[in-house]
Simulated scan of single mutants.
Amino acid sequence: MSDVYVVGADLIKFGRYPDRTPAQLGAEATLLALDDAGLNIGDVGALYAASTFNAASMIAQQILFQIGQTGIPCVNVSNACAAGATAFREAFIAVKSGLYDVVVAVGAEKNPAGMLSAGNSEGPPPEGLFGSGTMPALFAEAGVIHSAKYGTTMEQFAKVSVKNHHHSTMNPKAMYQKETPLDEVMASEMIAWPLTKLMCSVNVDGAAATVLVSARKAKELGLGRAVRVRGSALASDPWESRNGVLMNTNSVTRLAVATAYEMAGVGPEDLNLVELHDCFATAELLHYENLGLCGEGEAGALIDSGDTALGGRIPVNVSGGLLSKGHPIGATGVANIVEIVMHLRGEAGARQVAGARLGLAHVLGFGVGVGAAGVHILEKA
């Protein structure tokens, strides 16, 4: 089986695009990634397109309708927030198997307005009966559990937002590029304690794309800007005896990252940077521990130390993260990978992580009571 390399990666500026379709956004991102690779749609053997709200419209075929219908296989992927990582993993498998030399993975989304939920379940709605069925409430409860067990404070959760909003000021493709001091984060509108409005991810439209190629094709194109996929893992929630009301926000990520580390032959101590799923500020601290960046109960101390900020030991979400860059659901998994690729190439501009050689991209998706997680480990070629 072939090694797999990313030779093209890009995304559009995240924001609101009322006059454009999801496929048009995805087409723009795909063309950007192809241009970055020095290829065109005629070179592509297959295309995997991720979207959560738009996948049923055959978004992959609609993207090709915009940029060139070459008759290649198209696969439409919907897997909640893990959709983009799922499309990337399927593209990785398609190349690694030897079936194709060049494959595109693209995520594109136009999020509906307002707060997003995990969807509707059969029977009485859990909202108001069993805590809450909304995502802010779910991750607020998970944060409170962490606080009760380890003494994590609201200020420590809020520091995640301060850090990521600061990082976003160096990312021209982030939705928001604005500093938010700690007192401003904590004083903003309360959504679900301890989460204020500035501790919740930004609901935006967006698209991101990557071009994956075989080792043979990578050598033909030149390895100077190529990035090797060292580990690729996708997991679903394992069965476990647990509270039937509050979903476990941790176990599926731990399962996926263990597989990715094993495949890559590395551990968290080898990483130079991480883009993780900070859908809410509480989630980032939980994932510090889930990804092995620190020990159990040490996430609060890790954010206090400054080690996860740009210039620290293990910078996290230097893009601005979902909290500031934005969270176009189906595109997020691909966008996190694009950010890692930029740093490994040394092309991240003012937010560049110095000497970056190994990075990890993570996403977590939830449906009704079940989850999915994708983890990819990438290495400078």
Rank of each mutant, 00 (worst) to 15 (best):
E289I: 05
M263K: 14
A258M: 04
E284Q: 13
G265W: 09
D270P: 06
D270H: 08
G292P: 06
C294P: 10
C294A: 10
E284C: 12
M263Y: 01
V274C: 10
E289A: 13
A258G: 15
F280C: 12
P268K: 04
E262M: 06
L273Y: 08
A258S: 14
L293T: 03
L273H: 04
G265E: 11
V266G: 00
A281P: 04
N272Y: 02
L291P: 05
H277I: 02
E284N: 08
P268A: 15
M263F: 05
L271C: 09
A264Q: 11
L286A: 07
L271D: 09
A260T: 04
A260S: 09
L285F: 09
H287N: 13
G292Y: 02
G267L: 05
Y261T: 00
C294G: 10
C294Y: 04
H277W: 02
T282S: 15
H277N: 11
V274N: 11
L273E: 03
A256V: 09
A258V: 00
F280R: 11
A264K: 05
D278T: 07
E262H: 14
V257S: 08
A258K: 15
Y288G: 11
A260E: 05
H287T: 12
E269Q: 15
E284I: 07
N272I: 06
T282H: 06
C294S: 10
L293R: 02
D278E: 14
H287R: 14
L291N: 06
L255C: 07
E289K: 09
V274P: 12
L285E: 03
V257W: 00
L273C: 14
E275W: 09
V266F: 07
Y261A: 13
G292R: 06
A260C: 13
L276R: 02
A256H: 06
L255V: 15
E284R: 01
F280E: 11
L271Y: 08
L271G: 11
A264H: 07
G267R: 10
V274E: 10
A283W: 02
C294L: 02
